[in-house]
């Protein structure tokens, strides 16, 4: 079984994010970066699956030089090798450009399974799994909370707004991870040592061009400040007279 995992370098979930002075970006100094939390489930899933079925696991990202930090962490978690599609200011790309790069790498690697998170928590896009499946002609299983990998097909549980669903699809398949798929493990010292020797290939790639830019970032609209209520009667009055839901 060959598995390709896409990950993304995103700010830590605990990071305080503020617009930069020129409003074209966010303040990046002092922010620590992690593997997008949902992509981490994808990495762990690939590592677990290789443990059961054998094969090869490749982790890729579209990122700048500092994204190698996240690739190394994935290698430390147990991935075999890494591919960096190099792009400065990768966070400004449209999801379609990132999807294109993932699909190009997949065309070369020919994995049975492409794994990634359901959403990236920085530009907040859910479009990548669908893009990649369509571009490759692979089957698609999104929002997966549990998967059982057979010889010719995979059976998954997924969670949508309709309910809990069980789906099946033959390989090759794109799978997007929802929370619950597994418990990502913190890399061991041994894993970190090994990761240093694993190969990271760097690729240059021409991406399709689109009109897409953030014209300005703004802080969330300010809230008016808290009004403290003393009693349940107070709260009922507020729900009636101010919030007007009663």
């Amino acid at each position: 079984m060959k598995i390709l995992v896409y990950i993304r370098r995103t700010p830590d979930t605990a990071a305080v994010i503020k617009p930069s002075e020129d409003r074209k970006d966010i303040v990046r100094e002092g922010v620590s970066f992690i593997i997008n939390p949902y992509d981490e489930f994808a990495v762990q899933e690939a590592v677990n699956l290789k443990g059961i079925k054998g094969g090869e696991t490749v982790v890729m990202t579209v990122g700048d030089d500092s994204s190698v930090e996240q690739l190394r962490r994935a290698l430390a978690m147990g991935m075999d090798r890494a591919v960096l599609v190099k792009h400065e200011r990768f966070w400004e790309l449209n999801p379609s450009q990132v999807g294109y790069a993932i699909a190009e790498v997949a065309k070369r690697e020919k994995p049975d399974i492409v794994l990634m998170g359901k959403v990236t928590i920085d530009d907040y896009t859910y479009a990548l799994p669908g893009y990649v499946a369509q571009a490759l002609g692979y089957n698609l299983l999104t929002y997966v909370t549990h998967a059982e990998y057979g010889d010719s097909s995979v059976k998954v549980e997924r969670e949508t707004d309709i309910g809990k669903e069980v789906w099946e699809a033959p390989y090759p398949v794109v799978i997007s991870a929802e929370r619950g798929l597994n418990e990502p493990k913190i890399p061991t010292v041994m894993g970190i040592m090994k990761a240093k020797k694993k190969p990271v290939e760097v690729l240059e790639m021409d991406l399709p061009r689109y009109t897409y830019e953030v014209v300005e970032f703004n802080p969330p609209p300010p809230r008016k400040g808290v009004k403290l209520l003393e009693s349940v009667d107070d709260l009922i009055r507020v729900l009636k007279e101010e919030v007007k839901i009663l």
Partner: peptide, 16 residues
């Protein structure tokens, strides 16, 4: 659109 989990809001130009 809210970026970075709604910690900031982006005004976006997109065309095609």
């Amino acid at each position: 659109k809210g970026f970075y989990s709604n910690k900031v809001f982006a005004k976006i130009r997109i065309d095609g």
